[in-house]
Structures are given as structure tokens and as C-alpha cells.
Design a protein around this nucleic acid. Structure first.
Length: 366
DNA sequence: GTTCTAGAAC
DNA sequence: GTTCTAGAAC
């Protein structure tokens, strides 16, 4: 496993080593050589995710900690990746993070005993939870733990400012399946009788970001999707499709409560907060029954995103990746969302959504 | 008058 | 992504 180094930019002291998922509190003191009273002795809590290559920074002190000029805010938490600059307090004391291969430095007892493997969760978030080790699907798990609906896991604090896909995927109540690589959740707004999302723990921002190295993961996602059908009581009478939206639809929206303060007049839109952007941009496989019998299917965009080439079959994505090493999305794909409403089964055009819904009933299995 | 959509706001 | 709503369509 790699290690994380926090490198001081202006008054160089030895880089501070952060171990995977071990919280470290930093502030005024001999370790940073910061004497500025504006900086609390416990200014920030840092936690590195050495597998994914970022750290989370929680501001503990009263005065502002910044990441690239954006205020974190007391009690809030953001992620910092290599290339970003963390200012401990008041735009001063810049640090960057670097991930390097393991050094001979003695490792913690917790880490010594285990082989290097991926972690199975995103960084922990939230309201001052001290440790999530007990319910993290941890590195030292015996062979991939595969579970169907698990009520036993302790819910992880969702964090007061983030919501959406990431929270759903980490909330055990939402999970219908999980293993060491993926988690399956029910879509919060299902567009059919059965609508699951298969999400990799490793965040991939969009189809564009996929490369050959992802082939195995995508094949696994498809297998897991197929597994969902096998345990679906209506699988024999409903048709299903497994695929991706050509352009990711899960929007990332900054939900920091003090977003206005963070903007600091820099014109940062709610859609551009780096911490949130990272958390919300996430490729997901739709496993959806073809009845489209759902009150959540409300408009043309919903319909066309599942019934035109905007919806790319999982096997096509995998084939493209194997053949070309990447996935290309045809120009004009977003225009497909505006096409007239056409029944996916008999191709009959329907004037409105309510009429389409009436029509779909004629195709439902008796 | 009601139904429905598209676009803005979130 | 959802919700809200003005105004188009009927």
C-alpha cells in the first residue's frame, strides 16, 4: 500500500506521514512549527485514503481552513487530492499531499497484519465520528464478503452536508448487495417496477473516464446485475436491461451549508465545489425492468434516457472497452433526450407522458 | 376552464 | 437528479 505525505510548502519541515484511514489532528505546535495564535492546536483532522489517493480534511478550529481558496468551515469536511493546496488557517501555511510507495517506516499494528488490498468504502464523512473501522468493509476482511440485504451493519454517519448517490451507497439500509468491489442500491426514484444501481466503490466519474483496466470491474458489475435478476421474483415475466447512461445524470451539487462564505466572491458555482464534485460524480450501472411502470417516470428526459441510444448496454460498453480501450459517446447523444415519446416495444409514438403511460399498460404482463 | 411540458431553481 | 411553475396546448 502507498503512504500519504503531507508536505509543507513555505516553511519546510519534514513531511508528515499519514497512515491509511488513521485520523491525525494537526495545528499550532512543534510538528508544524506554527506559532500563530489564529491557528488552533487542533485546527484540522486529517484522514488519508491511500488506496484512492486523497485525504479528507475536517476543520476543527474556529478560524478558516482553506482548500484552494475555498473555506472548509468549522465542523465540515472536504477532500484534498494531489495538486490541490491546503491552507491550515487564514490562507496561510500551505500544504500539499503526495502519495508514494510504502517506506520502511514501521507501520501501525493494524496495518502490519494485512495484505495490501483496496479499501471498500469511500472516505468516512461526517459529524465527528471518531472511527468507522468497526463497520468499514476493511482491508483485512477474509475473502470478499458478499451479502444480500444486511440489516446488521451499523449505519454510517451520512455527514450533514452531503447527500445523493454516495450517501445511498454507504447507507446499509439502502444496500441490497455488496462485496469488495461494488454495492447495489435500489434507485431512490425508480423508473420501473425494478430499478437497481450497481456502483463500484472506486469512483469513476463517467463512461469517458473508463479504460481497459476497468474491464474486469465492469464485467463484475454486470455479473452482479444479473445476480439481482436471479433473485427477483418477477424476473420470469419481466424483461430487463443492464446499461449505463451515456452522459452521467447524477448531478453533483455543493451542499455545504456555508457555501456562500466559501464562495468568497470567487464565482464558484454550487456545481463546482471540488469536494462535492468528487463525491457525486460516479459511474453506475442501471438494472431496470422494461415495464416502466412507475410514478417516478415523469418526463421525456426520463423516458428517452432509458429507451434511446442514450442508454448504452453494459455488454456494449465492455466490448468497446476491450476493443478500443475506451468508450466513445456519439456526438449529439444528449439530443436524444428530446426525441418524441415512442413506445420502446411497438415503436408507436405517443403525444404526452400520461398517454404513453396508458399505452404502456397494454404491454404489461397479465 | 384543465392538462401538460419545458425550463429555471434547487 | 427533483420540484416548482408559467404559459402553451387543448
Amino acid at each position: 500500500m502507498s503512504v500519504c505525505l503531507l508536505v509543507s510548502e513555505d516553511d519546510p519541515h519534514k513531511p508528515i506521514q499519514l497512515h491509511h484511514q488513521q485520523p491525525v489532528t494537526l495545528g499550532r505546535g512543534p510538528e508544524t512549527k506554527i506559532k500563530d495564535k489564529k491557528c488552533s492546536r487542533e485546527q484540522v483532522e486529517l484522514r488519508a485514503d491511500c488506496n484512492r489517493g486523497f485525504i479528507t480534511v475536517k476543520q476543527l478550529g474556529v478560524n478558516p481552513t482553506n482548500v484552494d481558496g475555498v473555506v472548509v468551515g468549522k465542523g465540515n469536511q472536504v477532500s484534498v487530492k494531489p495538486g490541490q493546496r491546503l491552507y491550515l488557517v487564514n490562507q496561510q501555511y500551505p500544504y500539499t499531499v503526495r502519495f508514494t510507495e510504502d517506506t520502511p517506516t514501521p507501520r501501525s499494528a493494524a496495518e502490519k497484519s494485512k495484505p495490501s488490498k483496496r479499501a471498500h468504502r469511500m472516505s468516512s464523512e461526517g459529524n465527528g465520528e471518531k472511527s468507522s473501522e468497526h463497520h468499514r468493509m476493511s482491508d483485512d476482511s477474509p475473502p470478499p464478503k458478499k451479502t444480500l440485504p444486511s440489516g446488521s451493519d451499523k449505519p454510517e454517519s451520512a455527514g450533514h452536508w452531503s447527500q445523493g448517490l454516495k450517501v445511498s451507497m454507504q447507507d446499509p439500509k439502502m444496500q441490497v448487495y455488496k462485496d469488495d468491489r461494488v454495492v447495489v442500491i435500489k434507485d431512490k426514484y425508480p423508473k420501473a417496477r425494478y430499478h437497481w444501481l450497481v456502483l463500484p466503490w472506486d469512483s469513476i466519474s463517467s463512461l469517458k473516464a473508463l479504460r481497459s483496466v476497468h474491464v474486469e470491474l465492469l464485467k463484475h458489475m454486470q455479473r452482479v446485475g444479473d445476480q439481482m435478476l436471479q433473485q427477483c421474483p418477477d424476473a420470469h415475466k419481466l424483461r430487463f436491461r443492464l446499461g449505463y447512461h451515456a452522459i452521467p445524470s447524477m448531478r453533483y451539487r455543493c451542499l455545504h451549508p456555508d457555501w456562500l462564505l466559501m464562495r468568497g466572491g470567487r464565482g464558484l458555482s454550487r456545481m463546482q465545489c471540488l469536494g462535492c464534485l468528487f463525491l457525486f460524480s460516479h459511474v453506475h450501472l442501471h438494472v431496470i425492468s422494461q415495464d416502466f411502470d412507475s410514478p417516478c417516470l415523469k418526463n421525456k428526459k426520463h423516458w428517452n434516457s432509458f429507451t434511446t441510444d442514450y442508454f448504452v448496454e453494459s455488454r456494449d460498453v465492455i466490448a468497446m472497452l476491450e476493443h478500443d480501450g475506451k468508450v466513445t459517446v456519439k456526438e449529439g447523444t444528449s439530443e436524444l433526450l428530446k426525441l418524441p415519446l415512442r413506445c420502446h416495444l411497438c415503436r408507436q409514438e405517443q403525444p404526452t407522458i400520461p398517454k404513453l403511460k396508458e399505452h404502456l399498460k397494454t404491454h404489461l404482463p397479465s
